[in-house]
Design a protein around this nucleic acid. Structure first.
Lengths: 252, 252
DNA sequence: TGCGCCGACTGGTCTGACCAGTGGACTAGG
DNA sequence: CCTAGTCCACTGGTCAGACCAGTCGGCGCA
């Protein structure tokens, strides 16, 4: 069953999709540049030989990708947006291709990001924020008795708080995003692991150690424990061949 | 001119946009869950009291955001996609809202990310990759004599290489993306700065120091120099009040 | 010369139609 | 009774043509 050629599901290519591709390709080739204008919708209808509805659906996709912007009444036609916006979207799309990322890359990224956030947070945290961290530890403890989903939510709250303390919403977003992806991939396996409760308790214990280190102002130690914890927690789901790469990340 | 209330350009809200918002809000509230189905297009026409074209334009946006997927002939209607895909896109969109991010957040993120990548790279790098790094230094040196754009490209190549050496494409993507955004915001100012050439030479010098530290296997030093360099390079464009936050990131 | 008006456009929306698929209900055959 | 085949209501994809409010450039008037 796992042998033999792997066929991919074939799905019909929609006309509006091919329009989107043509425009984005032109942009990638440089035939189209930011600041330039696309022909008017009616002109595009003629060029692509499709109906205006189809052209407009394609424009909606391009717009949602941050490639173009239409303005009613503008005789110049849809505007090609400047680099930052287009490139960002384009890159993000690449990032969003979860299936092209290995689990170990995702986990490695989390180890690095989370470690960095904790290190920064251990310097910037106020006494009140330290109290908040303690509070999330209690919440995690309580959640263990409920179920894995509850624990996972409490864990999320912990990492959100860390990211917030690090005073950088980008860190926060990145961490949340990648965390969501990783969990989406393996949450079931963890939840149904026979030693699920033990895993949660151990994770809680490590989190408490992290908070202790933060309180002591030892960012290095805090980050290291956090990375170690993440390794222990997730590495089991990574192929053996890739575990070494992750293990190398624990120490800094 | 810089005083007084700042008004934002007002633009009409399109009907399809409000449909997109309603669906995404419903998803965020939990009224709609992954795996569930949206009503058929003709049903949505009735519910939203718009034409089918409008519904379809909204669906194209939702589809491009990874929220739903339509399949021709499927009597169940468009499918709400599972968490990982939706959440990822959603978060990424949030991330992509450059205007909501401060420049200092972006730069701080780069300092942290790039520092982490360099630290990892200094451990994982092979002798060949070290040679490649040296080569990019030469390229940077040559590019200075051309113009800022050329230097910027050579600098990009350097950071791409660092990210690749760190064996994590996510780091690579993140770094590239944020770098692109930052440059999009201030590249002009740097390029036209009176001391532009001096800045480039200094940056090159720091890069060389980074490579030296990597060769010596001192990840901490390499990362610290890189963060310092980024601070020197960019901090001038950040409001004074936020510079301290960035400066705090230099040491780890 | 300067101003305001006008008209040829634009994008946003609507109506109504056709087509190739899909999948559930129904039916004929085992 | 269950299975296999047919059928049909319905889906999404696409098309053609229409109207409207808004934009902008040029023309003509003061």
């Amino acid at each position: 069953m796992t042998k033999g050629p792997q066929f991919e599901p074939v799905q019909p290519v929609r006309a509006y999709q091919r329009i989107v591709e043509q425009v984005e390709d032109a942009l990638a080739r440089g035939d189209l540049a930011p600041g330039q204008r696309l022909p008017s919708e009616r002109e595009l209808v003629a060029q692509f030989a499709v109906s205006r509805s189809t052209v407009r659906e394609a424009l909606r996709v391009l717009e949602s990708n941050g490639v173009v912007r239409s303005r009613p009444g503008d005789p110049n036609g849809p505007e090609i947006l400047p680099f930052s916006s287009f490139a960002l979207r384009k890159q993000m799309t690449r990032l969003a291709r979860v299936d092209e990322l290995t689990l170990s890359e995702l986990i490695g990224f989390r180890m690095i990001m989370d470690g960095a956030a904790i290190q920064v947070a251990s310097r910037l945290r106020t006494p009140e924020e330290l109290d908040d961290l303690e509070a999330t530890l209690v919440a995690m403890r309580d959640a263990i008795d409920v179920d894995f989903a509850a624990f996972s939510e409490a864990d999320l709250a912990f990492h959100e708080l860390i990211a917030r303390i690090s005073r950088n919403s980008l860190i926060q977003t990145c961490n949340e995003v990648v965390r969501g992806v990783v969990l989406g991939l393996i949450a079931d396996k963890i939840a149904h692991a026979p030693n699920s409760r033990a895993l949660m308790l151990e994770s809680l214990h490590h989190h408490a150690e992290v908070v202790d280190a933060i309180r002591a102002g030892d960012g290095h130690a805090a980050a290291r424990i956090a990375r170690q914890n993440m390794f222990d927690y997730y590495a089991g789901y990574v192929p053996d061949s890739e575990q070494e790469t992750l293990r190398a990340l624990i120490d800094d």
